[in-house]
Design a protein around this nucleic acid. Sequence first.
DNA 1: ACCCAGGGTCATA
DNA 2: TATGACCATGGG
Length: 229
Amino acid sequence: MTPGERLLRIYRRLLEAHGHQHWWPGETPFEVMVGAVLTQNTAWSNVERAIDNLRAAGALDPRHIAGMEPGRLGELLRPSGYFNVKAKRLQAFCRWYLEEGGLEALRQLPDGELRRRLLSVHGIGPETADDILLYAFDRPIFVIDAYTRRLFSRLGLISGDEGYEELRGWFERHLGPDVALYNDYHAQIVVQAKEVCRPRPRCEACCLRRVCEYRTTEARRRSVTGTPD
DNA sequence: ACCCAGGGTCATA
DNA sequence: TATGACCATGGG
């Protein structure tokens, strides 16, 4: 079986277990971009509160955010954590967004050029850039995150310590460009990681049990003593 | 009380 | 290039 076939088989199994995820949660592309910055190393439930604060303040708008007093913006972002850092990053992003001429101007750029420009913004790293490219601009960019590394290294498909670009290239090469697939695949990985593929795993409840080479110490002990799974 | 969460930047070696 | 410190709230 080729890596591409294994990847598709794994996706089908995830989809069957969790159902289509309909990502990214967000009313507009701009809201998706804001969420991508705010969710850096942060639980999504906390990000929602911050976005609700922005909406309630009528501030869910690039011009409004760019012109706001940083301390005031920080207060709205407080529930999402790192609020001083994120206030700066969000303002840097919004100023860039406006300088570029807004959504329609950005839509004209080819994938690679748009990615380079996103990465030039202070506070936008590879994963945040790729969230934005895939979920706000519908570009065929496969998002790599800690969950992706954990899941696929436990599945034995990767070692987990590869560089970001190397892994992204590997997934994109084996899956072929497919925005709808990348979109839901990454969402499935996140859901799977939250529910069962935890730092301390719960493989007994894992829909990938048959293809996952990872075993808990208890399962390992059973397997060497001849007790069936 | 501890671990974890949909990362990125900066200083240091 | 490769580590480590730092940022900070909220849920399990």
